[in-house]
Design a binder for these strands. Structure first.
Length: 565
RNA sequence: CGGGGCGUAGCGCAGUGGUAGCGCGCCUGGCUUGGGACCAGGAGGUCCCGGGUUCAAGUCCCGGCGCCCCGACCA
């Protein structure tokens, strides 16, 4: 690629709408062009990176015996109605009608299509197991796209699906995927962790996420500093580190006019949030539950949902009043007609402050919660909690989800009738797993991880080009010669043949983040060119004679950083 | 969906009711060539859209659209 003729629209200034690093550098480097909110064109450099990522993924998926296929984005509503997700996806699904008025969706994921294929072609346990995968465009009408490629509405995803006759076989495919994902992200040069996760809307038994720790991430991870325990805070568990006892030794009612938040009450009564028991009214399956949790913790609705077997709905002010309490002043003492569910954290508070179920009043010195029969883990882990595995300190960090693996089970095969005949001639639902990787997120994560004030620093394995010839000395005629020879030797090289001053060329080369600069400069007349490594600025002076061989050695050595055995 | 911000040249931005501007980029010529040079000349505008007020609207008012950020939400 000769830069003088290439579509590489680098920008000198930061684009206004780009807040985070990857978004800014992708735009400035001429990698992407926004078309609408959460919808992007991959310009030539951007598409080269995506293809590098694609290739790594297909190589590793093929290695575990997965078969690549390609399913449509355009899918009929009937399929989604069969699984119940035509309703369940709600506004997240892009919907459209054909000329006859028939409903279609642009697929946000492909379990239904897979089940449709499976029920047509899988008949016997002899046909199982199967792993099918594709790299294909997904559509999700996200309520809020953000951060450039981090959350978009149209995106390339590798999704794979495994089909099994028994659970052991599913376990095997799940393990294979975990191994493949570790290899993929390692080869892409990412620093990542894999953590226990929640399966959310997908349903299912077990799931793990692959995460890149980054301030730009939207997910939260609880990580133990000592033993490496790591989990999404949606499912993370940890112990409460401290015991709290307030100065109010006697149980009495106090006037707290207008103080409806933990912070206000704490300040006014001169206690810490840990001395307050928050009471939150939820309805689950139309049954009211009063949730008790220590004031310095938050309720984890995912945990609550699995404990109570339904989606918890926050009570309205009217519902609270109907129970004889008052919003902002609800509490466990004297409240009738609700089931009390206490988080473990309330065990660690004595002489607590609680709502008095009466406008503008709280109780202090409450200890009734210590006599409950049971306590549950329904809180969100927070920084400073105690690791259950090893007693170490828990940290909470942001992270970008780049991959997710699920043991789905039979949810889709049952609802859609994807069955097989087992050895005994009995008809049984196919057991499924599903596994995803977001290619654009790998690209963005790499930039979030690897950049400096001058621009991107691509891992060699996913860089759009291996090297760029920075041609400063044109008379020597060295650049065109090296350009040809390098391509013949399998080096993907750009050639900055523009009539620009050296500073411009260096700045652009750094901005777009090419791993090696090959500088044809003042020493070219003496038969020397300089190689600069972007990652650390290391330099080599190499003779033009035999340059290609020497450079290949340097490059091959660099590529070893991204190999897995 | 709630809150906030922004829409003016390719990009970044200024603009006080009265002739539409600056920097960068772009084009031409000169000069320069190891980290975003310099000089001279030039091109480039639906001031997001619609309506209103006014002698006069980029500017004031009303309505809409788009984009970004925070939150809610989210395989």
């Amino acid at each position: 690629m000769k830069l003088s003729k290439a579509l590489v629209p680098t920008l000198r200034e930061d684009p206004r709408d780009a807040e985070n690093i990857s978004h800014r550098l992708l735009l400035r480097g001429g990698y992407i062009k926004q078309i609408a909110a959460g919808v992007y064109t991959f310009l030539p450099l951007g598409w080269r990176v995506m293809k590098k990522i694609y290739r790594i993924i297909t190589e590793e998926m093929d290695r575990i015996g997965a078969q690549e296929l390609l399913m449509p984005a355009l899918t009929p509503a009937d399929l989604w109605e069969e699984s119940g997700r035509w309703e369940a996806f709600g506004d997240d699904m892009f919907r459209l009608k054909d000329r006859k008025g028939k409903d279609y969706a642009l697929a946000p994921t492909h379990e239904e299509v897979i089940a449709e294929i499976a029920r047509k072609f899988i008949h016997s346990y002899k046909d199982l197991p199967q792993i099918w995968y594709q790299v294909q465009t997904k559509f999700r009408d996200e309520p809020r796209p953000r951060g450039g490629l981090l959350r978009v509405r149209e995106f390339l995803m590798k999704d794979s699906y495994s089909l099994h006759a028994d659970w052991d076989s599913l376990d095997e495919a799940y393990e294979k995927h975990r191994e493949a994902y570790i290899r993929i992200f390692t080869r892409a040069g990412l620093r990542f962790v894999h953590v226990k996760a929640s399966s959310g809307l997908m349903g299912g038994k077990q799931s793990e996420e692959f995460m890149v720790v980054s301030d730009a991430g939207e997910d939260e991870l609880a990580i133990c500093e000592s033993c490496g325990y790591a989990a999404n805070t949606e499912v993370a568990v940890a112990d409460v580190p401290d015991y709290a006892e307030s100065q109010y030794k006697n149980f009495e009612k106090v006037h707290t006019p207008g103080l409806t938040t933990v912070e206000d009450v704490a300040r006014s009564l001169r206690v810490g949030p840990e001395h307050i028991i928050k009471s939150i009214l939820y309805y689950v399956n139309d049954v009211p539950y009063l949730i008790l949790i220590r004031g310095d913790y938050e309720v984890n609705e995912e945990k609550l949902s699995s404990l109570l077997g339904g989606k918890p709905l926050y009570a309205t002010d009217e519902e609270i009043i109907r129970l004889g309490s008052y919003p902002g002043f609800i509490g466990p003492h004297g409240l009738e007609g609700v089931k009390i569910i206490a988080d473990e954290s309330v065990k660690y508070v004595k002489n607590a402050v609680i709502g008095a179920n009466e406008r503008d009043y709280h109780y202090v010195g409450y200890n009734g919660h210590l006599e409950l029969d049971a306590y549950y883990d329904i809180r969100k882990v927070k920084e400073g909690d105690v690791c259950r595995e090893c007693g170490g300190n828990i940290r909470v960090v942001n992270a970008i989800e780049i991959g997710h693996i699920f043991k789905l089970g039979t949810r889709y095969s049952e609802s859609m009738g994807a069955t097989f005949l087992d050895r005994d001639g009995k008809r049984r639902p196919i057991i499924m797993g599903s596994y995803g990787i977001g290619l654009g997120r790998i690209m963005a994560s790499a930039i979030e991880l690897y950049h400096d004030e001058n621009g991107i620093i691509w891992p060699l394995s996913i860089a759009p080009f291996h090297a760029i010839i920075v041609e400063i000395n044109e008379e020597s005629g060295v650049a065109p010669r090296l350009y040809d020879e390098l391509w013949k030797a399998g080096v993907e090289v750009m050639w900055d043949d523009r009539n620009e001053r050296p500073g411009v060329k260096f700045k652009d080369a750094d901005l777009i983040g090419i791993p090696f600069k090959i500088v044809v400069g003042r020493k070219a007349a003496e038969g020397l060119v300089e190689v600069q490594r972007r990652r650390d600025g290391h330099r080599w002076d190499l003779p033009v004679e035999g340059f290609v061989e020497e450079f290949r050695k340097i490059m091959d050595e660099e590529m070893k950083r991204y190999e897995v055995s």
